[in-house]
Nucleic acid binder design. Structure first.
Lengths: 92, 92
DNA sequence: GCGATCCAATACCTTTTTCGCATCGTCCCA
DNA sequence: TGGGACGATGCGAAAAAGGTATTGGATCGC
């Protein structure tokens, strides 16, 4: 599980569509297919149901989506917090 | 910033020593040097002070350490939560 | 039914990243 | 001043990620 896989996963989950997600992520569709599949393989769970219209989240996917957003937000908070010169508690 | 970089960082911070950290992580020392440096480069901050005895966390590093542990714990919780068969709320 | 269309999946190759081994430079101490 | 213990660096190999082209399959319009 990598952070980019989680980013990919979140966008695919939001778009319910690999090609649109790929466009949003500025990558091509095949890597997305592979990374999503790699995620499913590693977690030993299907995250999406493949339909002729696109990808629909399965219940396990919904659960991962919450986790993934939390993790990515935490990463973003860390980045913000470390931004040079920013004191620990600017209000004090 | 990648999850493995954060794992590396946490262990180096705990050991205050690249070679010992490398042993714990089952990698060799050079990749550790490089990944830590890559992290510092990306965050545009020094995380460790290099001493003849090893590596000592700088204040920014201490801050990142808290974030890193939180993120890695969140990842671990996600993994646990997705483990097959585990219902959402086993108590109900 | 049948071709066109729109999906995701696969094959194949290229590029990027990561890793390990060997070695270096530096500092400290006996 | 020589040896030992650090982290840093050079370099070639291995692994991971990405891109283009293509395939397979389901649906829709005619």
């Amino acid at each position: 599980m990598s952070l980019s896989q989680l980013e990919y996963f979140v966008v695919v989950a939001e778009e319910e569509h690999l090609s649109r997600a790929a466009k949003r992520l500025h990558v091509s569709q095949p890597p997305l297919t592979r990374q999503i599949r790699a995620l499913e393989d590693e977690l030993e769970t299907k995250l999406f149901e493949r339909t002729p219209r696109g990808m629909r989240l399965l219940p396990t996917g919904v659960r991962l989506l919450e986790h993934a957003r939390g993790i990515l937000n935490a990463v973003e908070r860390a980045r913000m917090d470390l931004r040079v010169g920013l004191p620990r508690d600017p209000a004090r």
